[in-house]
Design a protein around this nucleic acid. Structure first.
Length: 686
DNA sequence: CGACATTTGTA
DNA sequence: ACAAATGTC
């Protein structure tokens, strides 16, 4: 396994494993001889999930740290700008004379496809390709129930993980030094991660966060030595500095989960020996949140659609309220519910939110406002520093009640009560909603009930400097009931239609006139959300239209932007290629031998017609996404930018074999979803 | 010590 | 809202 005498070096392809310690691909590369470390920035490949501003900021910092560590070890990080990672890899291989490629696994749907293709293409060029597990305690395909089937509930999954017959592998030490490959003919591209606007907005982030693997290590140590022991007691506090703050580090793989697991476990044994029950329990709870991260990859691998369609099919028939006024009020933190609003303001200003508050605001979004969950998920994607497709998809599905072990649909959490639970003294609300700062705790989570005199004393005029509740909880409950009964009706009708052989189970009504967002959703300072008005916007049965992302970077880099993007390109925005429909989505060019991943229900599958498949998303798509976004400064933070409508989503694979409904839940349907993309079928080492 | 009440936590 | 865990007599 060493060098192989051929003299060719190895490429180590860094992605979301931006660390030198416990990096199996890097270790393998170093063992094999000379190494060329590469990072390819090809955000257009992410289509709609082009990374948000804060996420890109983090990546930039993190790469700088990685580069300097690699340099210290002997080989710099080669950075490449690309719209097609695989062909760029090929170029790098050619210009360096490499004979091997090493990388670590990713499990989001896009990466599964891209990496699969990378293996195929590079292998066909005579390159030895090997990939490794660097992101998880156990590979998804190694965790199965007694019948060899994937788990479908978290607790069963996690129980199994914790009782596997073998422990997760011990973390690898960083290499002592790296022999550099020949990069004389492989120049770096300068990567641009932020434009001038964004730079200004991002300046503040550095005060609160320190990206990079060495800082990740510090954060981990600080957490284990500090807040961990109190985790079980404190984890419910919205305002806490008691979380690990590891999530962005983990997202970019600056610290390995295996290392976290091992260190935390060691501490647990220690506490157990001391009879420290609280400490022991704290570790269990913290590990559970690590487990959820694992589970999100597990779900994504087994159901590569989970980021865009409900796992339990009935939600497909939920009549979502398509109301951009609600949506805007939610984003701005002007719903009239202090806990929700405080959360949204914090997110807006810092790109961060405590897990509890994520649940509160997303649950409010889905249950009270009844907005399509994918909008919310997309907003999180754009705004969160630790935006993570798999984790966020899991979270939103959990909230929406489309997981077997998720929250029930018909349950509305009352933000007022949750407020007193998670923020009993109102400190959190006061910090993020200065307009309520003078309100006594008694009323802080339900100002609408406060006596006029109290409001006056606190300088609050409801409906003027703080909104009345956008929707009353009772109204929301009634509406939710109504919507749910509609949903079940639709579901039943659809099933009946399928049984009658009327193939088109889903009412085509929804497909005919795709709703589009208003052109420009600006962050207006004093927008007053309408109160309790029945949703003026139509309800719709498909939840597929996701307001698009903003990528102002592209605006700068690609000058070719056409004049009227909104109408042309915006309608045909590149989607996550999973659902690419060639006819409809003209912008997504499927080059000869299109790779098309089909519905999970018809067994997700990468179809390849001939060897060199290529799925390319043209630059125009993303450029289009950058148009018409409003931005405004706002106390310290910067308002996340929101841009206009997105395409209709091509969820046309309507007539899934089994129909869609609870009776034929995905539990029974998922069998071979992963067969094709299963890594087991790919050369596996490590 | 078991039957029953109360509290708690809910991926 | 509910099931599990914990507390009480």
């Amino acid at each position: 396994m060493s060098g192989g005498g051929g003299g060719g070096c190895s490429i180590v392809w860094f992605r979301r494993d931006l660390r030198v310690e416990d990096n199996p691909a890097l270790t393998a590369g170093v063992r094999a001889g000379a190494v060329v470390a590469v990072f390819i920035w090809a955000p257009e490949e992410e289509g709609q999930y082009y990374p948000g501003r804060v996420s890109r900021w983090w990546l930039k910092q993190s790469l700088a740290f990685l580069d300097s560590s690699l340099r210290n070890l002997g080989a710099p990080l080669i950075t490449k700008r690309s719209t097609d990672s695989v062909s760029t890899l090929l170029e790098v291989v050619k210009s360096t004379g490499a004979t091997q490629l090493f990388f670590n696994h990713l499990y989001d749907p896009l990466s599964l496809i891209r990496d699969h293709r990378a293996k195929e293409v590079l292998t066909s060029h005579g390159i030895a390709v090997r990939s490794f597990n660097a992101d998880l305690l156990y590979e998804p395909w190694d965790v199965n129930d007694a019948h060899g089937q994937p788990f479908t509930t978290f607790s069963a999954f996690w129980e199994r993980c914790l009782s596997m017959p073998y422990d997760p592998e011990a973390p690898l030490l960083p290499p002592k030094r790296i022999i550099p490959g020949d990069i004389s003919r492989c120049p770096c591209d300068t990567l641009v991660f932020e434009d001038e606007f964004e730079k200004a907005s991002n300046a503040l982030l550095a005060r609160a966060w320190s990206p990079g693997w060495n800082n990740a290590d510090k954060a981990l140590t600080a957490f284990i030595n500090g807040p961990l022991i109190e985790y079980s007691r404190n984890r419910r506090k919205a305002d806490s500095a008691t979380t690990s703050f590891l999530s962005p580090h983990l997202h970019f793989g600056e610290v390995s989960v295996k290392k976290v697991f091992h260190l935390v476990r060691i501490r647990q044994v220690l506490w157990a020996n001391e009879g420290n029950k609280a400490g022991e329990e704290s570790v269990n709870l913290f590990l559970k949140s690590i487990g959820l991260r694992e589970y999100s990859r597990y779900i994504s691998f087994n159901h590569p659609y989970s980021h865009e369609r409900p796992l339990l099919g009935h939600l497909k028939f939920f009549p979502w309220v398509v109301n951009e006024g609600y949506f805007k009020a939610w984003r701005q933190g002007r719903t009239g519910y202090p806990l929700v609003d405080a959360g949204m303001r914090e997110l807006w200003a810092t790109g961060w939110l405590h897990d509890r508050i994520r649940v509160v605001v997303s649950s409010f979004f889905v249950k009270v406002l009844q907005l399509p969950w994918r909008w919310g998920m997309k907003y999180f994607w754009d705004a969160l520093l630790d935006a993570d497709l798999e984790s966020d998809a899991l979270g939103w599905q959990y909230i929406s009640g489309t997981l077997p072990d998720g929250r029930e649909f018909d349950r509305i959490d009352n933000p007022q009560f949750e407020g007193y639970k998670f923020d009993p003294n109102g400190e959190y609300v006061r910090r993020w909603l200065p307009e309520l700062a003078r309100l006594p705790t008694e009323w802080i989570h339900h100002p609408w009930n406060a006596p006029e005199s109290v409001l006056q004393a606190a300088g609050i005029e409801l409906g003027s400097n703080y909104p009345l509740p956008i929707v009353g909880i009772d109204t929301a409950k009634a509406r939710l009931q109504e919507a749910l009964s509609q949903m079940w009706q639709q579901e039943a009708a659809s099933r009946a239609a399928i049984e009658n052989g009327t193939e088109e189970g889903l009412g085509d009504s929804s497909e005919s006139a795709p709703y589009t967002f208003p052109q420009d959703i600006q962050m207006e300072e004093n927008l007053e959300p309408v109160r309790n008005n029945p949703p003026s916007a139509p309800r719709r049965y498909e939840d597929q239209m996701v307001p698009s992302i903003t990528s102002s970077l592209l605006r700068i880099e690609e000058e070719e932007t056409s004049s009227d993007l909104r109408n042309s390109a915006a309608d045909s925005r590149a989607e996550v290629p999973i659902n690419v429909n060639v006819q409809q989505n003209a912008r997504v060019t499927l080059n000869p031998g299109a790779a098309v991943l089909q519905s999970p229900h018809s067994n997700a599958r990468l179809q390849q017609n001939n060897g060199a498949t290529e799925l390319r998303i043209t630059a125009e798509d993303s450029t289009a996404e950058s148009s018409s976004s409003g931005r405004r400064e706002r106390d310290g933070g910067v308002v996340p930018v929101w841009s206009p409508p997105t395409s209709s989503f091509s969820e046309q694979f309507v007539g899934d074999e089994n129909g869609i409904g609870t009776s034929s839940s995905y539990l029974q349907r998922h069998p071979q979803t992963h067969e094709i993309l299963n890594w087991r079928r790919l050369p596996q080492t490590g």
